[in-house]
């Protein structure tokens, strides 16, 4: 009888979701040392960091699968299970984009023109900031469940999401400026290199986009 009482608590998705965003954020954060190495042409170091990124992306993926497996339809939850799965999906995409972008840069041993290197690194930092803010917001899930998604805690999370939106807007601006700078010098670059640089900028920017979508998903949970 005792064991059965324990089993009525379906495995809670909250702690694993918080753990998942932690991994996704740590994965995105590795882009800073990765690009720092890449800009300096230190490809040994970049390859090593790229290894970390792949490992973390795998870890996030495994955890994602595990969380899905432990959310059977028979679970009774205060929020729709679909919404939690969607949240999980966008969290996972933060890690996915990180892996994609580092893969392209690594595969092509991409050399950033010195004139935009610093600006690019700043842009990367801001995207990592967005992922960090997404992590901060998701960490509130626990408290949100305790309060039944009402009261002061909700205001707190709403403020966090607003901050996340601000960071994301900032990355958009930085992205536009970066494209502008790249456009000015693209004629001097190998056309294929230039093309992939645009691609890398776009994919990096998507990290903040995904972080913002994490915020949107959390907002949806709040409205229940």
């Amino acid at each position: 009888m005792g064991i059965m009482l324990a089993n009525i608590f379906g495995s809670s998705p909250v702690v694993p979701l918080e753990k998942h965003i932690e991994i996704a954020y740590r994965c995105a954060k590795r882009l800073q040392p990765f690009f720092a190495a890449a800009v300096n042409g230190n490809w040994t170091k970049a390859a090593k960091v790229r290894g970390d990124i792949e490992m973390l992306e795998h870890k996030a993926d495994d955890l994602k699968k595990e969380i899905r497996l432990h959310l059977p339809k028979s679970l009774f939850m205060p929020v729709p299970r679909e919404d939690l799965l969607e949240l999980l999906l966008v969290q996972d995409k933060i890690a996915n984009r990180t892996k994609d972008v580092s893969g392209i840069v690594m595969g092509r041993k991409m050399q950033f023109p010195a004139s935009i290197a610093d600006q690019f690194l700043e842009f990367v930092d801001r995207n990592v900031d967005a992922a960090k803010q997404a992590r901060k917001s998701v960490r509130e899930l626990d408290e949100l469940f305790s309060t039944g998604f009402r009261g002061a805690e909700v205001d707190l999370v709403v403020a966090m999401i607003e901050e996340l939106d601000k960071i994301e807007t900032d990355t958009d601006n930085k992205q536009a400026a970066l494209r502008g700078e790249l456009f000015k010098i693209e004629a001097s670059l190998n056309p294929i290199d230039a093309f992939f640089m645009y691609k890398v900028i776009e994919l990096t920017g998507e990290i903040a986009d995904m972080a913002e979508r994490v915020g949107r998903r959390l907002e949806l949970l709040l409205s229940h």
Partner: peptide, 22 residues
């Protein structure tokens, strides 16, 4: 009683199959 707390949206997940079995 635990289900009551769950209805007050206090518990992240309750496995209704197990409740049914009990």
């Amino acid at each position: 009683a635990v289900l009551g707390v769950g209805l007050a949206r206090g518990i992240e997940a309750i496995d209704l199959r197990v409740v049914g079995r009990i």
